[in-house]
């Protein structure tokens, strides 16, 4: 999923357009850009800044404040291992370790083949099934470390 700088600007402009005269658009715009491009390239942030007349320092501030936004390309699949309280007391650290061992990358990193990005998350709200992880939009519960490989294998 690689886009040229011009494509990025073009796509971003389309997303920004409806918000030109509205208020409160910055976060929804960043969410939409990331949805389309997978992350927030510098060209996109510059385009938003110019079109909405918001200083890029402020946009950068917002983009780095929220955990959801990423300034670097991400894997095709995002593995979110829940590190909430309920999951913690039911052994989520070992699940995270197992994911790290299989993929060979650390938290908040992406595998070289762009297959997986590993991301611990505060709570997925599926505490009844602890420990839990979420790959893209699918939730997997009642995990044990030896189940992790079989699940990861399903995502190419």
């Amino acid at each position: 999923m690689a886009f040229s700088a011009e494509e990025v600007r073009e796509k971003t402009r389309k997303i920004v357009d409806p918000w030109r005269n509205g208020k409160g658009g910055l976060i929804p715009i960043l969410q939409a850009v990331q949805e389309q491009l997978g992350y927030l390239p510098m060209e996109a942030l510059e385009t938003i800044s110019r079109d909405l007349k918001i200083p890029s320092s402020e946009i950068y501030g917002v983009a780095t404040f929220y955990a959801q936004f990423h300034l670097k390309p991400r894997g095709r699949h995002v593995v979110r291992v829940c590190r909430g309280t309920a999951c913690h007391v039911r052994g989520s650290l070992k699940i995270l370790d197992s994911v790290k061992e299989i993929t060979g990358v650390e938290e908040n990193q992406t595998t070289e083949d762009l297959r997986f990005t590993i991301e611990p998350v505060a709570c997925l709200g599926a505490c009844g099934l602890a420990p839990v992880m979420m790959i893209d939009t699918r939730t997997f519960g009642r995990l044990t470390p030896d189940m992790v490989k079989g699940i990861l294998d399903k995502f190419e």
């Binding site: 208020k23 409160g24 658009g25 910055l26 976060i27 929804p28 960043l30 969410q31 402020e58 501030g61 917002v62 404040f65 929220y66 955990a67 959801q68 936004f69 505060a122």
Partner: peptide, 25 residues
């Protein structure tokens, strides 16, 4: 409005800042 992943946005003044499109402080 979809939140963007910041626990502190549960605090009401931070939440409103976030709706306005700013850092949720």
């Amino acid at each position: 409005k979809e939140g963007a992943g910041a626990f502190v946005c549960g605090e009401e003044t931070a939440l409103m800042a976030s709706i306005e499109g700013r850092r949720g402080m």
